[in-house]
């Protein structure tokens, strides 16, 4: 009898405790949730809303114009220039920075000699503030006094172009600076990936007949680095898309939009010309592009996981 009376009470206590656990769970997640809402989700939402208006920074009126901004973008030559430049820039930087990072990591892993030294030297650019380093690059790439052109002139007798003012070279110069910085970062990621490969696999490959380094690379290193490679390509692509600081500090998108890129164009439309609605529409396109890259790569990663 006593049991029968206890049962509902116990169930009640159990429910109360479960409720308490739920509550404290939400309580613990709350600070992070608020931050994410305030810093990421709400601003994105606001940008989405602004993208369908004609809002200008400081304007008193705001009007819904549907896809008007996007229609304008389709015919905006500057936007397409920036869009193409971003793609070209990415195509130049990603393969170079990824392969160089891998190459440097392989060289450093190959021999214990000077390992710490080279690792530090290649990683140093990552720790440098790019806006500050841009000033240094400005000097190095200066058309007359710069180290590069001085070297070209004195050693090879070639007069180098004006790296940052020549429309044919400006994008590659900026890409070079990006590669200079990103290689060290990629190297560190690849080094971590290489460290995780058991040395027995290389021994087995040697005994199995892989007498050349290229055989061992194809048999052991390359497959084992798969997940690392995917991550490195993803992160380098995203960083590449987001290029802004070197453009802002060195070229301001010039000459004649030759180095204008998406993010810089958004900044200029939004904060120089105060066309907030228009800039928001561009931001949406930028966002979609980045999401697309991330989705493609996450998808291919998951497929690879499933296969193995």
């Amino acid at each position: 009898m006593a049991d029968a009376n206890f049962a509902p009470m116990l169930a009640g206590a159990h429910r109360a405790r479960a409720f308490g656990a739920t509550l404290s769970g939400w309580g613990l997640a709350l600070p992070a949730t608020i931050l994410m809402l305030a810093m990421i989700l709400i601003p994105t939402l606001v940008a989405m809303l602004l993208a369908v208006t004609d809002y200008q920074l400081g304007a008193r009126s705001i009007q819904y114009i549907g896809l008007g901004n996007f229609a304008e973008l389709l015919n905006d030559r500057v936007f397409w220039r920036a869009f193409n430049n971003t793609l070209i820039y990415t195509l130049m930087t990603v393969p170079t920075a990824v392969l160089l990072g891998l190459g440097v990591a392989l060289l450093i892993e190959a021999d214990a000699f000077g390992r710490g030294f080279f690792r530090t030297v290649y990683f140093l650019p990552v720790t440098a503030l790019l806006v500050a380093m841009a000033t240094v690059w400005e000097f190095i790439l200066h058309s007359d006094l710069g180290l590069v052109n001085q070297l070209l002139a004195r050693v090879f007798g070639i007069s180098g172009p004006d790296w940052l003012s020549d429309p044919n070279h400006v994008l590659s110069s900026l890409a070079f600076i990006f590669v200079w910085q990103q290689t060290g970062y990629n190297m560190i990621l690849f080094l971590a990936g290489l460290k995780a490969i058991p040395s027995d696999l290389y021994s087995a490959a040697k005994v199995d007949g892989a007498d050349r380094a290229i055989d061992r690379f194809l048999m052991v290193t390359w497959p084992a680095l798969g997940p690392t490679m995917l991550f490195v390509v993803l992160i380098t692509t995203l960083y590449s898309f987001r290029v802004f600081d070197t453009v802002a500090a060195l070229t301001q998108g010039g000459p004649a939009n030759a180095s204008n890129v998406l993010l810089y164009n958004i900044y200029r439309e939004g904060f120089v010309y105060f066309r907030t609605g228009f800039a928001s529409a561009m931001t949406m396109i930028f966002l979609a592009l980045i999401l697309l890259v991330a989705l493609i790569q996450i998808h291919s990663f998951e497929r690879k996981e499933k296969r193995s």
């Binding site: 027995d200 087995a204 199995d208 007949g209 007498d211 052991v220 497959p223 084992a224």
Partner: peptide, 28 residues
């Protein structure tokens, strides 16, 4: 070089190539 000594080795960790099937491992 190990390849030319005509020896085979079995390792404590087995050292199988993780991305290859059993068939491919034996065929290596």
């Amino acid at each position: 070089h190990p390849k030319l000594r005509d020896i085979a080795m079995v390792f404590q960790s087995y050292a199988l190539y993780p991305h290859m099937t059993v068939y491919e491992n034996i065929a290596v």
